[in-house]
Structure formats: structure tokens, C-alpha cells
């Protein structure tokens, strides 16, 4: 194996790991033996598992992944729930160890401001731009807005027509 040939040191290793992970079928994620007896708590665990990233997988949650690390994290989530943690406390527990990278829903904070605001900003700028454009065109051409069908009928009537434009 050509390990360590590249200056970065880890590239071939990373590619190999990615290849192995990618081609490992996510056959079975949650297994019967890890599920909690209490259905309400198990449902919470499942919901939380969908918020946590399987760190070694490509864009999978720990709920979807059969990677060993994902299973460890699923067990950890259930352990914390059994210990009485609330949902946010469980997420905070995992984030303290693995960083924000583990959260599928990026937290709203300084470095994700652009991300979370982008849809609203684009929509607002787009709407404002459209409004300005519509207004600008009307004043640029100096034409009044076209008549509505109703107004056209009324106009036709006034002009002595039969009401069909």
C-alpha cells in the first residue's frame, strides 16, 4: 500500500477509509438488542439519532448507519436518556465531545449565521429587486398599467360597445 506517500500524510488513508465506508452497505442500523424497553424513550432516542451525524460516514445519521461508531453513539444516546438527560442535554453531551460537526442541524451561531440567514436574505432581496424592477419599468416607459378585463368591459360600455372587448 502506498501509505504516506503524499505530503499530507493522510490522503490515501482517507480515500481508503472513505471507499470502505461507502461500499459498506448500511444494511442494518438500529438493532433489536439496543432498543429501549420504554417505547416513549425509544422514540425520543430515534428522533435524537436522526439529529446526529455518523462521523465516519458520508452524510448519514447514526440512525441510518451500521458503522460501529454510529452504534456506540446510539447506545450512548440511550444511556444518557436512561440517566435522565433531556433531549438538549443529550445533544450537548455529544457536541462537547465531537464538536458541532456531529449535529445534522447546524446550531444557529456566529459561523452559521450566513447559512441560516441566506434563504431569507435571498428571498427578501429577490422580492425587493422584483418590486423595484416592476416600479422602475412603469415609470421608465411612462405607460399606465394595462386595464383589467373588468375595466376593459366598463370602458367598452362607456364607449357604447356591447361589453366584449
Amino acid at each position: 500500500m502506498a501509505l504516506g506517500r503524499s505530503p499530507g500524510g493522510g490522503a490515501p488513508w482517507l480515500v481508503l477509509a472513505l471507499a470502505l465506508l461507502l461500499f459498506t452497505q448500511p444494511a442494518f442500523a438500529v438493532l433489536p438488542d439496543e432498543m429501549l424497553k420504554d417505547p416513549a424513550m425509544e422514540a425520543r432516542a430515534r428522533t435524537l439519532s436522526q439529529e446526529l451525524r455518523c462521523l465516519v460516514c458520508q452524510n448519514q445519521t447514526i440512525d441510518d448507519s451500521n458503522a460501529p461508531l454510529a452504534r456506540d453513539l446510539r447506545l450512548l444516546v440511550r444511556e444518557r436518556l436512561k440517566a435522565g438527560d433531556g433531549d438538549q442535554a443529550v445533544l450537548a453531551y455529544v457536541t462537547a465531545r465531537y464538536g458541532d460537526f456531529v449535529l445534522m442541524r447546524p446550531p444557529f451561531q456566529a459561523n452559521t449565521l450566513v447559512l441560516w440567514l441566506a434563504p431569507f436574505v435571498v428571498l427578501l432581496l429577490g422580492a425587493a429587486g422584483t418590486a423595484l424592477w416592476l416600479r422602475g419599468r412603469r415609470s421608465a416607459t411612462g405607460e399606465p398599467p394595462p386595464l383589467s378585463p373588468d375595466e376593459q368591459r366598463r370602458l367598452a360600455k362607456l364607449l357604447g360597445g356591447d361589453g366584449t372587448p
Binding site: Q50, E51, R53, N59, T61, G99, D100, F101, V102, L103, M104, R105, P106, N111, T112, L115
Partner: peptide, 11 residues
């Protein structure tokens, strides 16, 4: 250099 985040289905 702003750190590592994941953007997943919840977003």
C-alpha cells in the same frame, strides 16, 4: 477556517 459543521436534512 471557520470550523467544521454539518448541514443535514433538518436544515
Amino acid at each position: 477556517g471557520g470550523g467544521k459543521v454539518s448541514v443535514g436534512p433538518p436544515f
